[in-house]
Amino acid sequence: MDQLNVKSVDKAYGGVIANHDVSLTVPEGKIVGIIGPNGSGKTTLFNSIVGHHPIDSGEIHFNGKEISSLTIPQIARLGMLRTFQQTHIYGKMTCVQNMQISSDIDANWKRIFNPFSKEVDEMVDELLAFVGLYKKRFLLAGDLSFGQQKLLEFAMALMKKPTILLLDEPTAGVNPTLINGLIDRLRQVNEEKGITLLVIEHNMRVIMNLAEHIYCLANGTMLADGKPDDIQNDQRVIDAYLGN
């Protein structure tokens, strides 16, 4: 079944057409990649999907439900979360606090004036250990290195128990050793927790290894899609990247 279905979405900023007639489908439980040169409209597409801005035309269905008119928190609560290209973390709070506040606090709003429950704290420890930040859990998140902040942001997203994660360049700015660990963990959450992943990535080695299906955007339109091997050998994709 298609978990996420984007149908001919248009989005323009004034006269600049960022997305034109973009469609894609993400089947449940799969890893799907989006590639494309800088400025091709990948992040705009993400922003459209998660409700960051209204779209000009088109439809976005999530689990069969039209979501293009919902707000960011509403969509997030349906189980779709995104991470950012530049890390977005709560810098003046410790890693543990970053994780705690990422738990579903509204689910039990009667306890809102109580401290976090034991289950939440256990989940925090478990996920921090999973991304390898357990030792640094009492440091301020703002003091972590960029790569560690990316890991933290990833772990924070997992706290919400999402069904689909939209990752915007998860490996950008992360050192090569950490990248391998990150890929393993992405695969692990996909296989073990069954979380669908939609990944924007510039690192070709990473995306070709990770994704089962790849979409290529160029100049705001969908240029090609297919299996990693097909995309790699597609002349249009190569031209788009090399600037022909």
């Binding site: 960011i72 997030a76 995104r82 709560y90 506040i101």
Partner: peptide, 21 residues
């Protein structure tokens, strides 16, 4: 409490807090 941490989250990064629901 959880409420207090939510206020701090808004202080540190309101966009992130919103995108986390």
């Amino acid at each position: 409490s959880q409420f207090g941490l939510a206020l701090n989250a808004i202080r540190d990064n309101e966009n992130k807090a919103e995108s986390m629901g």
